[in-house]
């Protein structure tokens, strides 16, 4: 399953004003893999994620999704193939159940399907006992579990995670990371995972992509990156950050 590419990016350039904020010559995300995008703060990691979510428009380049040009689809049709989890859970001011159901409601799924899927994913993330609770009253860890359930319930072709654990305390982070790793393995969900935390990336990801100074510098398995970094910048980042 992890051989053919779900996403292929070629000659991507994203600008903000006159400034280049991301350049990617070539990047493939294999079906079913977890690809961690690592790099220093402000390097352009989240720009890659937002571009893939079609929340930023590239200046040039091609993004193909499942072998077809993504540009040919409307924004809404395209976005309904993905799901996004951000650093802050950004839960809606309603119940936990309704939060997890929101994306399914956007897709006009029927009541029975919503009930079944939401219950299943609340259970899988270990928050089914919170279903009726108001989302704004949750702890940080609970809220991020609900946020993950809200995305995973959509069974997205591509899951986009933008530093989802960085605001959590270490024990909570470790616990969610373990559970998420198991779920992604079980469901074989193709995932792009943006993080500045190398141990987190190594633990969750099959491969890592290093973005430095607005450019994708290297992509590969963690061991090969640590053994043979492509250049000084990558080596400096990996050595500096490795624990």
């Amino acid at each position: 399953m992890k051989n053919d590419a779900l996403i292929t990016i070629k000659d991507l350039l994203v600008k903000r004003g006159d400034k280049d904020v991301l350049r990617v010559e070539q990047l493939s995300i294999k079906r079913g893999e977890v690809l961690a995008v690592v790099g220093p703060n402000g390097a352009g990691k989240s720009t890659l994620l937002l571009t893939l979510a079609r929340l930023l428009s590239p200046e040039q380049g091609e993004i193909s999704f499942n072998g077809t040009q993504a540009q040919n689809e409307s924004d809404t049709v395209y976005r309904r193939r993905i799901a996004l989890v951000m650093q802050d859970p950004l839960l809606f001011d309603t119940s936990v159940f309704e939060n997890v159901a929101s994306g399914l409601r956007f897709r006009a799924k029927n009541k029975i399907e919503i009930q079944e899927k939401v219950s299943l994913w609340l259970e899988r993330l270990g928050v089914s006992h919170l279903a009726k609770r108001r989302a704004k009253r949750l702890s940080g860890g609970e809220a991020q579990r609900v946020s993950l359930a809200r995305a995973l319930v959509l069974e997205p072709e591509l899951l986009l995670l933008d530093e989802p654990f960085s605001a959590l305390d270490p024990p909570t982070r470790a616990s969610i990371l373990d559970d998420l790793g198991v779920l992604l393995e079980e469901t074989e969900t193709t995932t792009l995972f943006v993080t500045h935390d190398l141990p987190e990336a190594v633990k969750l990801a099959d491969r890592m992509a290093v973005v430095i100074e607005n450019r994708l510098e290297q992509i590969g398995e963690a061991s090969s990156l640590f053994e043979s970094p492509a250049n000084k910048e990558v080596a400096r980042f990996l050595n500096h950050k490795s624990v």
């Binding site: 079609r54 929340l55 799901a83 996004l84 950004l90 809606f92 994306g103 956007f106 986009l160």
Partner: peptide, 26 residues
């Protein structure tokens, strides 16, 4: 409202009208 809420709604597949309706609810 948090400006990232719009991105989050789009990131869950909301259309423009669904996004606006959700913001009104918030």
């Amino acid at each position: 409202l948090d400006p990232r809420l719009r991105l989050q709604l789009y990131g869950l597949g909301a259309s423009r009208l669904q996004m606006i309706w959700s913001l009104w609810r918030e």
